[in-house]
């Protein structure tokens, strides 16, 4: 097992200064496609950061003993189709994405609809949660998120008894998201059944590695549902609605019948085109067996009756 040496990880100062550089470059060139060539390049000369913060690397693990995925990989390898289909290109293309003036509109079947701005979100007491992320493509990461249970936000708006599902929507900004030109059924919509959404592991994350989320990771606020494939953990949320009917998700609409609503991780249930039995742990370059419900079976198996039914894993 060969871990990435800490010396190979880009210090945050370099990374941040590159982001500033690329923001400037984007304005100069006004050509987002040109930036894709620069996206995702790692390495480089360690330059002292402006505020002297060290790159956040430590020897911590999740509860199963898996080391944290290096910061450079977590923030440099992202599926965020609104920017690019190329995971390494997303960070560069998303660098200028404006996330300071943000609002999450929560409504639908609730007693107290409310629009949460960033201060409202910061008012929720955040904690660090080290959670495994299993992408449906067959790779995984171990990520220290900062966030709070979605349940707290949902209780504040008081779901009505007729609400059975929660529908989430990612931001849609054609000016700053070059990937929207691709033929997909935008916006990115995801959904959970209400009891899944209220489960304590269902997290609204606002930070990663103790810092604010960078745009490529779904700034300023994203969902993390660690026992489901990563497609369910949508990024840069602008809208949350409580609804009576099961929402049609982005991948149900785009995936040519290959994706269902539940998407719970199960190594025994293959994707139509590939196996889900194993996964490659990014950063360690090690392939290993995937765990049932991504290792969270003890916590979440109670949500589902008849776990043997393959329906839950589609």
């Amino acid at each position: 097992m060969k871990a990435i040496r800490s010396s190979e990880i880009t210090p945050e100062g370099v990374y941040m200064s590159r982001r500033r550089f690329m923001t400037g470059a984007a304005k100069l060139l006004a050509g987002a496609t040109l930036l894709s060539a620069c996206g995702g390049r790692l390495g480089g000369v360690p330059i002292p950061t402006d505020d002297g913060t060290a790159p956040p690397v430590d020897g911590r693990t999740d509860e199963l003993g898996n080391a944290l995925t290096p910061y450079a990989a977590v923030t440099g390898y992202n599926n965020f189709y609104e920017f690019s289909l190329q995971k390494e290109a997303v960070a560069g293309l998303a660098a200028g994405f404006p996330t300071t003036d943000w609002a999450v509109t929560v409504g639908g079947l609730v007693e107290r609809p409310k629009t949460f701005d960033l201060d409202d979100l910061r008012a929720f007491e955040a904690e660090e949660r080290i959670l495994r992320m299993r992408c449906v493509e067959g790779w995984s990461m171990v990520i220290p998120w900062t966030g709070f249970p979605l349940a707290r936000l949902l209780r504040e708006v008081e779901p009505q008894s007729s609400a059975r599902y929660v529908r989430f929507e990612t931001a849609l900004d054609e000016r700053t998201m070059p990937g929207l030109r691709q033929p997909f059924p935008w916006p990115y919509v995801e959904g959970l059944r209400l009891d899944e959404a209220l489960h304590d592991l269902t997290t609204l994350a606002t930070g990663v590695y103790g810092q604010d989320l960078p745009p490529q990771n779904g700034a300023p606020v994203r969902l993390v549902v660690p026992w489901k494939y990563g497609v369910k953990s949508l990024k840069s949320i602008v809208k949350i609605d409580l609804v009576a009917e099961m929402p049609t998700t982005f991948w149900m609409a785009a995936g040519a019948g290959e994706y269902g609503f539940w998407s719970n991780v199960n190594p025994e249930v293959p994707h139509p085109r590939w196996s889900q039995a194993t996964e490659r742990l990014i950063g360690e370059n090690v392939r290993r067996e995937t765990l049932f419900l991504n290792g969270y079976a003890d916590e979440v198996a109670g949500l589902y009756d008849n776990l043997d039914s393959w329906d839950w894993y589609f």
Binding site: H271, A277, T278, R280, R287, R288
Partner: peptide, 19 residues
């Protein structure tokens, strides 16, 4: 490289890895 010649691991995947 990906499977490190680990045939057990490869065996878990290969039947469903039509491509």
């Amino acid at each position: 490289w990906d499977y490190r010649f680990d045939l057990a691991l490869l065996g878990l995947d290969i039947a469903y890895q039509r491509y």
